[in-house]
């Protein structure tokens, strides 16, 4: 059961200011007759009571060697700047961008061709589609289970330049997500949406750990700024 709306409003009001006398009196009297509100107020009081009182000092010096290690890493970064630090300075005209995208597509095609002609077990093309870059790309990871599986962990990792599409910032800002749950007999689908922020070739890597086996997908996203081509490959399963 939820607490009454008035109680919730007053608890919210008490954050950042003292309650008026009549407001405090209302809470006291109401809590005496309403178990849900009493539990809600008790939870709030318990938390505040435990958490207040200098659990962690407001300022703490970083551990020894923290600054030295940071300086070392900053030097590495400053000495070997990422390419994308220069990207804002590069301005492509539209036909140049198209030409570069075509070159990239050809390069991917060549690499894929040679990769597929090795003797080792090969990735299989699962699905391929082309969509406009104006809309988020919806992707379904599908797993066929011949019997129910109690515990499955699926992890999705994104390259730089690809972001999860979600109204929730904690999802949209993350570089990877992990889903844990069970699979039913038949097809189990894990859908997610992404947006490609920058033209070029990006990759999404997924892995599903089922018992001792790892099932992986590689999803290649090739964007020329207008259209986005997605190709999903299933890698041979392997023992963890």
């Amino acid at each position: 059961m939820k607490p009454c709306e008035r109680t919730v409003q007053l608890v919210a009001a008490s954050m950042g200011r003292d309650l008026e006398r009549d407001e405090a009196l209302f809470l006291k009297e109401h809590a005496a007759v309403c178990p849900e509100c009493r539990a809600h107020l008790a939870a709030s009081d318990t938390a505040i009571g435990i958490l207040k009182g200098g659990l962690v000092p407001q300022e703490i010096d970083t551990p020894p060697l923290f600054n030295e290690r940071l300086r070392e890493r900053l030097r590495e970064r400053a000495g070997h700047p990422s390419w994308y630090r220069y990207l804002p300075q590069i301005r492509f005209r539209r036909f140049e961008l198209g030409f570069l995208a075509t070159l990239l597509l050809l390069a991917v095609g060549a690499v894929t061709f040679f990769y597929f002609h090795e003797d080792a077990p090969q990735p299989q093309l699962v699905t391929q589609k082309e969509v406009s870059t104006d809309t988020p790309l919806s992707i379904d990871l599908e797993y066929l289970a011949v019997h129910p599986i109690a515990e499955v962990t699926v992890t999705i990792e994104l390259d730089e330049g690809v972001v999860f599409h979600s109204d929730y910032r904690e999802i949209a800002d993350a570089r990877s997500h992990t889903w844990k749950g069970r699979f039913n007999e038949g097809i189990n689908s894990i859908p997610f949406m992404v947006t490609v922020e920058k033209p070029g070739i990006r990759e999404i890597r997924t892995r599903a750990d089922i018992g001792d086996w790892r099932h992986e997908h590689r999803i290649t996203l090739t964007s020329n700024g207008k259209m986005l081509t997605m190709a999903m490959y299933r890698l041979p399963k392997r023992r963890i």
Binding site: V8, A12, A42, A43, S44, T46, A47, I48, I50, L51
Partner: peptide, 11 residues
């Protein structure tokens, strides 16, 4: 509010 409820549950 939700955080305090959850924390209190943990306690």
């Amino acid at each position: 509010m939700r955080a305090r409820e959850k924390f209190s549950e943990l306690v």
